[in-house]
Amino acid sequence: MDLGPARGGLRLEHVCLRFGDGDEEVNALDDVSLEVNAGEVVAVLGASGSGKSSLLAVAGAMRQPDSGQVFLGDALVTDVPEKRRNVLRRDRVGFVFQGSNLLASLTALEQLELVGRIGRAPREATRRRALDLLEEVGLAAKAGRRPAQLSGGERQRVGIARALMGEPVVLLVDEPTSALDHQRAIDIVSLLGVEARRHQIATLTVTHDRSVARLADRVLEMRDGRLVVPTDASLP
């Protein structure tokens, strides 16, 4: 499926998402509107259960919102068939998951090549790009190592390189510093910022770590499904 050239940016307009929790109905996202421009890094703070992951799921075309619209670049991802959403996610979104979420059986290089395989890109070009990206995140020498042979910070770097493999217009980052010590967390978030600006990718990071949120261009906060601008006092 050819989606044509993509223009950068992520846009959510009046997005609402509700789901049942026992007998109760929870407003995971309550009239959320957000725009992240190409090359911009936006951090969303929030406590557990505030709706951060729901925000990523909707922005990453994993969940259809109950109402509102989501744009990945110039492509509307709401109210489209699941198959097309998969293709949009594959071609326009890069994910950096919590705890890196690498496949145990694949080497660092193969983690990146996998993205090329999913996108049916030519093998040689895929390998070249994968090696370039590993070089970019400082792991070219460890391309042949499996996740168990890498440190937590290295695994997260592989995760970042993998997210960049598909040349996404939007980078969605889920708790990138969990399980990392403070210095490594700062390094990883710094690297994310560098890569987002270098590749002109709109980057949305959700985190509960206020110290790393400072490194973003903009900081927002989720409270009970609503996206708000935090007061200065609540920032580190």
């Binding site: 990453g60 994993m62 198959k83 998969n86 293709v87 996610r89 594959r90 071609d91 994910f95 998951f97 979420n101 496949l103 145990a104 996998l114 993205v115 999913i118 996108g119 598909g166």
Partner: peptide, 16 residues
């Protein structure tokens, strides 16, 4: 399960 979820999240179709 988590690996398969990851593959799908990366855009792999259920069929593949």
């Amino acid at each position: 399960r988590s690996d398969i979820g990851l593959l799908k999240a990366l855009g792999a179709s259920t069929t593949s």
